[in-house]
Amino acid sequence: MRRILFLLIFGIAGLAILLSLGAWQVQRLHWKEGLLADIDTRIAGDPVRLPDLIDPETHRYLPVVVAGEMLRGEIHVLVSVKQVGPGYRIIAPFKSGERTLLIDRGFVSTTAKSTLRQIGEMEIIGNLHWPDEIDGYTPAPDMDENIWFARDVPALASELGTEPVLLIARSQTDPDITPLPVLTAGIPNDHLQYAVTWFGLALVWAAMTGYFLWRSRALSESETQ
């Protein structure tokens, strides 16, 4: 009986822990869905003029409209677009009044890397963003071929001589460039998967606990005969 009681307590405790972890992930899922909904609303808002003082946390995803001149010079950031294949994001300097910022103009195929693109006066609508794309495995830029592997805003700004401010265009800046606007689809939300995993483990734990209890009881009965 002592062995059966131990297994019962151990099984219930483990089951409670696994169920609580699953419930916590469900709560996190609802929180993340609300956060993504807020971000979607902000991304799609009416564009405003570029703030005088820009803060990466306060102004992340802020919709902005700027008028000015697209300058010469660009950086190519290697990306892959689903159902299209590899290509490059075109990052270029843009002068608006006394300020110069980075514009993510969008996507071109690998064969269009060296194509001449439209520059000069234009108006752009987009969203401010500071992508977090750098980790310990990100290769250093290939400066000879002008190929970068992440949008490192401070490094891009230093290379092109701009403010460390990136506007990701959602309006077209060139007929041959496909805009890649900011979307929440790129923000991970794996909480449902985690919840299913924890609840699945809880089910397995409950089944195994039941099996061991049945086996222990069968052994106890055989020992008493």
Rank of each mutant, 00 (worst) to 15 (best):
G210E: 08
N127F: 02
V108W: 01
L219D: 15
W205L: 00
D144R: 04
V204C: 05
P154L: 06
A169N: 02
A206Y: 05
R151E: 12
I177T: 03
D104K: 07
A202L: 09
K95Q: 14
P131Y: 14
P141F: 02
A155G: 01
T111L: 14
M208D: 10
F212V: 00
R215S: 15
S96A: 12
V182P: 06
A140K: 14
F149C: 04
L102M: 10
G200W: 08
A112K: 11
A202H: 09
A185H: 08
W198T: 03
S96Y: 09
P181M: 08
P188R: 02
L101D: 10
E121P: 00
D144T: 10
R117Y: 09
D176Y: 06
V196W: 15
I134V: 15
V108R: 02
A155P: 00
I177M: 01
D174M: 11
L116T: 08
E145F: 02
T178A: 00
W148V: 00
A169T: 03
D132M: 09
E159T: 00
R105C: 08
F199V: 06
I125A: 14
A207S: 12
Y137Q: 14
E121K: 13
D142F: 11
A150L: 03
G136R: 03
W205I: 03
I119W: 08
D135S: 07
A218Q: 15
S158M: 11
L102E: 05
D152C: 01
L192W: 13
W198S: 12
A169C: 07
L213D: 13
A112C: 01
D176H: 07
P164T: 07
